[in-house]
Design a protein around this nucleic acid. Sequence first.
DNA 1: TCGCACATGTAACGTGTTACATGATTCA
DNA 2: TGAATCATGTAACACGTTACATGTGCGA
Lengths: 184, 184
Amino acid sequence: MQRGTDPTTLEFAILGLLALAPHSGYDLLQIFETTAIGNYSSSPGAIYPALGRLEKRALIEGVVDDSHALRPKKVFRPTPDGKKVLRRWLRARITENDVQRHLDELLLRFAFHSLVDKQASRDFLNDLARATDEYVAKLREQRKIFSDDEPPHGRMAFEFGIERYRACARWARRTLRHFEEEAS
Amino acid sequence: MQRGTDPTTLEFAILGLLALAPHSGYDLLQIFETTAIGNYSSSPGAIYPALGRLEKRALIEGVVDDSHALRPKKVFRPTPDGKKVLRRWLRARITENDVQRHLDELLLRFAFHSLVDKQASRDFLNDLARATDEYVAKLREQRKIFSDDEPPHGRMAFEFGIERYRACARWARRTLRHFEEEAS
DNA sequence: TCGCACATGTAACGTGTTACATGATTCA
DNA sequence: TGAATCATGTAACACGTTACATGTGCGA
């Protein structure tokens, strides 16, 4: 990560977790190992260097806590700068590239949306629904290239891709409805 | 890719495409750029080195064709060894790790299943349905850690994860049925 | 005293991304 | 003449994976 470039998905995942509650590296390790967020990584070899980069860039800061642990640990929390970067990420517009290749990251983004206002979440879900719809339409166009006398496996796998995005659009709309109802 | 280790996802994607029909590097580039398989990569900077590695490992071989093109191009096809490695991959048992973190690769695998026998495809789909069911059950257990008085965003994103795997299981069963019907 | 949980890291390696380089031919 | 397409690559860079290293304190 160079100065000025965006943090990676893993770095955002860490930044988000730290924004919800301060943690040590070891804490984070446990979280990544035992919960579903572990899909975004894993292993000390990724976490500790990521923490180092975030600290070096002053997006997080760590204070040593040797009060009651076996061994002193360094507890990290986001700096004001870190929170700003995080919120910018959370509110960023959804691009076609996000939808096509980084759907998982989009969902991670939404998972931290308690850190931004409700309108941003609604915008996000609207954007996501629209963008996935568009992509589904595009995929349906592409499906035509599969002819009926070829073996069907390619087309079948392709159809799972379509299903996946349809499921995403459905989820976005359902979740959006949930937000609207709650508001009333 | 070292001797003896498995090719990467991109390398398998290339190997699979070449098994369906011989292609030059430029051909592959077009395919990756214009079709949905592009989700598995992209860009000459990845394709050409991957071709080089596969050739070095003697999983593919290229012959120069300067018959009618503007410029001579090198057309690659899998060697017998390459086909063996590919088929081993296609028939490999589905692990929990595959399901949790490499679902896309699994679908890519299935896309090339016209290269193996029908029974292997049925095994694959059965395995996939069972493995995703198991993982959904595990995720549902994990969902309980979200309490009702926290902000709901984390749980909502988590639920999309569950939906995704349910959609996968449904797809696998539907496709399996398709295979059974066809057989009768 | 053996191993496990706590706690933090480093080093080697390979790979993908991005950007750039090159050179021929066709078409406006 | 210049742009677009065909066709193949290379170089710098950062990141994740895997494996290893280190040391404490607690319980069997």
